[in-house]
Design a protein around this nucleic acid. Sequence first.
DNA 1: TCTTGTGAAACGCTTCACAGCA
DNA 2: TGCTGTGAAGCGTTTCACAAGA
Lengths: 209, 209
Amino acid sequence: MTLKHEDVPEETMERMLAYLRELDCIWREGKVKFSSQTLAKVLHTNPAQIRKDFSYFGEFGTRGVGYDTKQLIRELRAILNLDRTWRLALIGVGNIGSALLRNPELKRQGFDIVLAFDNSSRRIGKKLGNIMVEDVSHLRDRIREEGVQLAVIATPVECAQDTADALIQAGIKGLLCFAPCHLDIPDEVRIVPIDIPMALGKLVYHMEV
Amino acid sequence: MTLKHEDVPEETMERMLAYLRELDCIWREGKVKFSSQTLAKVLHTNPAQIRKDFSYFGEFGTRGVGYDTKQLIRELRAILNLDRTWRLALIGVGNIGSALLRNPELKRQGFDIVLAFDNSSRRIGKKLGNIMVEDVSHLRDRIREEGVQLAVIATPVECAQDTADALIQAGIKGLLCFAPCHLDIPDEVRIVPIDIPMALGKLVYHMEV
DNA sequence: TCTTGTGAAACGCTTCACAGCA
DNA sequence: TGCTGTGAAGCGTTTCACAAGA
């Protein structure tokens, strides 16, 4: 029985991304079949968990045999909306922003930064890769012109909320935010935070002092 | 009743980090008191959740009144081991690695990158900020010399597992990993992954296609 | 009256155990 | 025999509701 998005635990979706990432590896290693057992061993998890996760979306395996690697990769890509290219806007071309622009991995994974903005005249007009950095004051019009749905906030904390507000005005539906602060966002907009100091916080909590 | 680390849900610890981050804001805004109600409103969460989270570590409030902002900041810093400076090693001084080295926010938050390594002669010997990039082949000795406990893996995926193995050999106890792949790590070593393509995956899963 | 701290209920995710099939 | 798919049990987290106390 196949359910849809709202019925799937967020945890399941996150593990599906991890399964896909690992299956890409397994495929590159030439393994055309796998079982929940073998995948679980690699990822240090429980085979029942993997089967249960898959079962939210359908039946992909063959009893007594296992799963077809390539087929599962295709299925997972489709389930996770990763079977297309997503166009992104980037706001803030400082350290992290320019690292993202220079990162070829993103494009390879289907995430294409097609717009970049900054508020500093030092950076506006410069070309990074094949993207021209534009003035953040043109953000709204340019995002609408290009029909971009997703944006990456890589500004300092001080500008992050204003940037988010402007992006939402521009019709953005999903945000990846590197600014280490809470943002106030309407329910219909999705935000995924990447907070590096907080990640280090998770680490040191478990350290012997 | 105060319990310790192993009895505290991971979710609680992660929220404690978010509370601390927000309390720093609240303090800068000049608010010397807060209630679970007011903090919950800002973070779009449940006041009972906040009180329950706090209760894992002690009693910090005054009934009928609320909490003292500055005192709570101090308590949370101590609980989360954020009341000291942590020294880090960085491996991989590419786009993301050099962005981290140039990021003054980390030092301000108590995370000090004191060693940087790379395997490219183009980068070895260069100075970034006030850190000299060293040859990754000296990793083990230098980490032991400096007594560093934490490391940041910012290498390409291809080197990530080897790097992790070397770091563990060197006695590293915690890893922040930017390489978008699963790493095989002994139980006693903590790893916190920051996987940017996966974060974008979480975002697009919820998008209307 | 107001807000904390907390047992207990409610809820949701994980794991188990086994029927169903190749 | 071997592995999947899944209902049900187990378990941990969240939320509720209220006693305690300023």
